[in-house]
Amino acid sequence: MTDQAHGQATKEAGIAGPRTAEHKKWAAQRIQQLLLAAPHLEEHYKHARQVIRAFRRPAFYEVSTRCNLKCEGCYYFEDGKTAKSRPMSSEEEWKRFYSAESARGVSMAYFVGAEPALEPKRLMAAAPFFPYGNIGTNGTIRIPREVPYRIGVSVWAGDDSTDRLLRGGSVFRKALEIYKGDRRAIMLFTLSRKTIDHIPKMTQACRDHGLPLTFNIYSPTTSFLNKLRENRPHDRDFFRFSTHSDNPLLSAEDLNRIRHLISEQMDAYPETVIYDHHYNRLMSAPQPPHEVDRQTGIAESCGSRIVEPMRYYGADLQQKAVKCCTPDVDCRSCRLYSGGWSSRFVPSATDLATIASFEAWLKTMRTLGRIFLLPREDGCISPAKPLSAAENLPEFAGVD
């Protein structure tokens, strides 16, 4: 496929199906039609339903307002509004809060913040309450083995000098060593203009350490873009080096290179690289993956939009009215893996146009499960605790 044809195909496909009840009902009916025509896909669809069910009622919990790194354009600290609330420090307070959230039917708990690994007791306290969980960490601190959830270990570079430039310290080697062979961990490589050529070496490093690898695409915050536009002076924290001509932002040409390099590594090392060719094409297209409301600037159909029953809580255990799980990110240029993958839960009309496109969507769901859910040794999805009646809700694409 030529780059021009790739761009057109991606534009037609889109990243997300509408989040309306009408579309979801149509999608469920269309899937049944496709399964009648292709019964060999029934088992694959059952697996997709199992993956989707795990995310039936997600919630985000900031467990820490502290961090030990200073990443350029930090998603958490960049807007200057975080770390102003008093974090709850009592383990009993956290347990009571988690218990109430479990009773609310939360099936997937995302543990976020500045650096969750700095608060291990808060992570361990969650284990009895949520069947599925996902922790985002920079990998510099080992999360106790008692925590039975998927761990996304963020890495930003494959050499020491670039890592120091982007994160204020070279930590990727330490992260690889700490989580070597840990089946909970998957390395999440955030790709920027400065690290595209690091894709092969990071793949090799993960292979050598017995770790799966997936990818995130650097997406700027509105605060970071404002600093670039206004030529603000550099600081010692999260805007240390970037200028109009020297920054982590990606061009259309950069995205094209990313697509080709990831595709090559996927084909060469399928046991290491956990990614999806269709998703790779969607996220590396030159046009933004999300349709944005012109008045609000918000990607209303993004799967990471914080709308009921999904909620976001600060470290003070108070619900926060934020647009998404990364509130300061610029929706117009967002290619973050959180919003990208979650937007695929509801298949678009293009996904369900043919048996082949439906099969591609099923493969995407399988890959999503491998990235975000802790696998059993036999490769199946295993909840950390039995599902309650509230958590074991209807299966497909949010249809009530």
Rank of each mutant, 00 (worst) to 15 (best):
D3T: 12
D3L: 12
P18F: 09
A21Q: 14
E22I: 04
E22F: 07
K24G: 01
A27K: 00
Q29H: 09
R30E: 06
P39I: 00
E43M: 12
H44C: 13
Q50F: 14
R53C: 03
A54H: 05
F55C: 03
A59R: 03
Y61F: 14
E62T: 06
V63H: 04
E72V: 02
C74W: 00
K84H: 15
R86V: 10
E91P: 10
E91N: 12
E92I: 08
E93L: 05
E93V: 01
W94V: 01
K95L: 03
S99I: 02
S99M: 04
A100L: 07
F111V: 05
E115R: 03
P116G: 00
P120Q: 06
G133E: 06
N134V: 06
I135T: 04
I135H: 00
R145M: 07
E146I: 05
R150Y: 09
I151Y: 01
G152A: 05
G158D: 02
G158V: 01
D159M: 04
L165I: 08
L165K: 14
G169Y: 15
K174I: 11
K180A: 08
K180N: 11
I186L: 05
M187S: 03
L188D: 02
L191M: 11
P200A: 01
M202N: 07
T203K: 03
L213K: 01
N226W: 09
R229Y: 13
R232S: 12
R236E: 11
S245F: 12
P248F: 11
S251L: 06
M266C: 11
I274K: 07
P286T: 14
P286A: 10
P288V: 06
P288K: 08
E291T: 07
T296K: 01
T296R: 01
G297I: 05
S301N: 12
C302E: 02
S304Q: 13
E308Y: 12
M310P: 00
A315Q: 06
K320D: 04
T326Y: 04
D328W: 00
C331H: 02
C331M: 05
S333W: 13
L336C: 15
Y337C: 15
W341H: 14
S342F: 15
A353H: 07
T354Q: 11
A356V: 03
F358N: 03
A360H: 09
K363E: 04
K363C: 06
T364M: 06
T367V: 02
L368N: 10
L368D: 09
I371S: 07
I371G: 04
L373V: 11
R376W: 14
D378H: 07
C380L: 08
K385D: 11
S388M: 05
E395V: 15
F396E: 15
